[in-house]
Design a protein around this nucleic acid. Structure first.
Length: 663
DNA sequence: TTAGGGTTAG
């Protein structure tokens, strides 16, 4: 079989450009210069305000008397004007100790600035050797916390070890382990953990928590759980943070039930949830599609006397916004301010996104200006405007905001470039798309899985321009391209295709679930529409086994199944439904068990903009009609097809159920 | 002595 990737030897379709790409992207027009030219009122000023500064819990002093619907009264800090050392707490307690803490701060500052300025090497050690003020282990830990580059941090950590009279303690070890974990340097991290016992510095629950978190965020759930068990085996009591971390990582990987179970276990051992845990749970439930349960828990949290913080409000507001419950959004937004929290960049972003999706782009821009009074915009906020305008089809505006970001001294990041790329692709402006991609590479930005996904989706949608899309896909150099190029023709049983897909998904292990779902959706849709339906089917099976689609098939109650296709594109939905029905068919032959009822939920489909005009729904309906699926007339939801009882069981016996996806 | 970990946006 051949596809447009030149599978089977002929790769001329993508190796040689058929069009001569040259020059930068189109000139900027419609650039929002009026926005760019407005300076942030706090930029360049010091940040010592006697009032309007945050309390320790992030709330603002004097809030009850202040009118928060008029942000003009506010002259609080910009997060940009806060130095990296601003987070270090003083020691408190009189002028003597103030002086001491000032000296301590200066030492930390010196070391931090030295380390920040250079890469790790002999020269760094030389400079450190010559620093006049020595630091103790407490200060060393403060410096480590400020370092984000794991190489520099580790170099410094080892250098400290060699200093006469210096000895690392549990804090510095734990901080270093945390930095390594964040950088996914698991080998070195484990080595350091072993070393702790050797130097008589026993790890604490905090040390274990950081390791569990590191594995979990990189999607190594098995390892995370192993460390948890290891920790319990060594006699450590897991605390709230341990549970909160485990809950969060399981929910994020699509194991919501495990997360709920852990939530219960935590309470059984006598740990009541705190604000962090509640926030994580509300987020998990909401993202898992259980919005009502999420909101109920949010209310329960308040009833139990646990105060939501800014993050909790942002989470619940974002969830309500996504569900388009705009009345609730407004109410919660107000509640948040009454509770004394000022919106931060994330809150503003949520509001801007809502406005953008409702088509009020100009109002979103107005909110940007409002936000700018309190906060210095960052890449994600600019990126959001690039994305919103791009999605609205106004690429000039998108490009304008992209340039505004550059003029603000910010470096473009991959997601923002993706938004711009997507905007050009939408309009079939391939030459501009090419420029964006080349620009990314020239700046050392590595195209992400999302970059490749949007190129592949474009390739599927724009048949006429498939050659051009393939060139762009090749340029990314992403492993996904190799996966498609070397996809073998399916052998009987398809084990070779399954192995190929498993290998790819293992390689993508640490990508988040949404991204994995995105690429698998694009791949399956592409293959299905290119006529490689058998391959598409095998790949779907692997994706399902690997929990990429945790909510697509579930048993709602005994013998009552739900097949949820509403997040899939057309080809994937057809493939997923066919393969799931085939699975029921096989289960029936094997075990004699048959579902009493199956609900097939299409929603309006991922690509549909107009309610009722879903391609997914249409294709599924066509497929079901063609194979004479015994449709039961369900009331209300026209995006849902239902089969049940004896007719369903008889229909599932048909041998053709095994081959539906090939049609 | 001081301190350390977990939750949100693209």
């Amino acid at each position: 079989m051949q596809n447009d990737f030149g599978k089977g030897g002929s790769r001329s379709g993508y190796a040689k450009p058929t069009q001569n790409f040259s020059g930068p992207a189109a000139a900027v027009s419609g650039s929002p210069s009026q926005v760019r030219n407005q300076r942030h009122p706090n930029q360049g000023h010091s940040n010592y305000h006697s009032n309007n500064s945050p309390n320790s819990d992030g709330r603002w002093a004097g809030v009850q008397t202040r009118n928060f619907s008029a942000p003009t009264v506010y002259s609080g800090p910009s997060d940009k004007s806060q130095g990296p050392l601003g987070t270090i707490k003083g020691h408190g307690g009189g002028p003597q100790s103030n002086l001491r803490s000032l000296k301590s701060l200066r030492a930390v500052e010196q070391y931090y600035h030295t380390l920040q300025q250079m890469k790790w090497g002999p020269m760094t050690e030389h400079v450190l050797d010559n620093l006049r003020c020595k630091i103790d282990v407490f200060q060393a830990n403060q410096v480590l916390k400020l370092l984000h580059d794991h190489n520099i941090a580790l170099g410094f950590f080892h250098w400290l070890k060699r200093q006469p009279g210096f000895k690392h303690d549990g804090h510095t070890y734990t901080t270093m382990i945390g930095i390594l974990g964040q950088a996914k340097q698991f080998g070195t991290m484990r080595k350091l953990l072993d070393e702790m016992s050797l130097v008589n510095c026993k790890p604490t629950v905090v040390t274990y928590n950081r390791i569990i978190h590191a594995y979990g965020r990189a999607n190594f759930l098995r390892e995370a759980v192993q460390v948890f068990e290891e920790m319990e085996g060594a006699g450590y009591e897991p605390d709230r943070v341990t549970y909160c971390t485990l809950i969060d990582i399981h929910a994020k990987s699509g194991y919501l039930e495990v997360a709920m179970d852990l939530y219960g276990r935590m309470q059984e051992v006598g740990l009541s949830p705190d604000t962090f845990t509640y926030s994580a749970m509300v987020n998990c439930l909401g993202k898992g599609g259980q919005l009502a349960a999420a909101y109920k828990l949010f209310c329960e949290m308040i009833e139990n006397g646990c105060t939501p913080n800014l993050v909790t409000y942002n989470i619940i507001i974002a969830l309500q916004a996504k569900a388009r419950n705009y009345d609730n959004v407004v109410k919660l937004y107000r509640d948040m301010q009454i509770a004394g929290f000022r919106p931060d960049k994330i809150t503003y972003s949520i509001v801007m996104e809502v406005l953008g999706h409702c088509g009020h782009l100009d109002e979103a821009e107005a909110v940007f200006l409002e936000m700018r009074r309190d906060w210095a915009p960052d890449e994600p906020v600019y990126g959001l405007l690039v994305d919103l305008w791009g999605k609205a089809g106004n690429v000039d505006k998108a490009l304008g905001w992209y340039h505004a970001m550059l003029q603000d001294g910010l470096q473009p990041n991959v997601p923002t470039c993706n938004s711009l790329l997507s905007a050009f692709l939408k309009l079939n402006r391939f030459q501009d798309a090419y420029s964006v991609l080349q620009n990314m590479l020239a700046q050392g930005l590595v195209p992400s899985l999302q970059t490749y996904t949007l190129l592949l989706s474009c390739c599927t949608d724009a048949h006429a321009s498939m050659g051009l899309c393939c060139q762009l896909m090749a340029i990314t150099g992403h492993p996904a391209h190799m996966f498609l190029l070397y996809l073998p023709d399916a052998e009987p049983g398809g084990e070779n295709v399954r192995d190929h897909a498993r290998y790819f998904l293992d390689m993508m292990h640490s990508e988040d679930r949404e991204s994995k779902r995105g690429i698998m959706d694009a791949v399956i849709d592409f293959l299905h529409k290119s006529g490689l339906k058998e391959e598409a089917g095998f790949i779907w099976e692997v994706a399902a086994q690997k929990n990429v689609y945790p909510d697509s098939v579930r048993e709602k109650s005994s013998s009552y199944w739900l097949i949820n296709l509403h997040l899939m594109s057309e080809g994937t939905a057809v493939t997923a439904l066919s393969r799931t029905l085939a699975w029921f068919h096989r289960q029936m032959l094997l075990m004699g068990s048959c579902p009493e009822r199956i609900d097939i939920v299409t929603g309006w489909g991922r690509r549909s903009r107009v309610t009722g005009s879903s391609l997914v729904r249409q294709s599924i309906e066509k497929l079901l009609h063609l194979f004479q699926f015994p449709l039961f007339a369900a009331r209300g939801n026209t995006g849902c097809f239902v089969g049940c009882g004896e007719p369903l069981s008889q229909w599932l016996h048909n041998p053709y159920v095994e081959r539906m996806h090939l049609l």
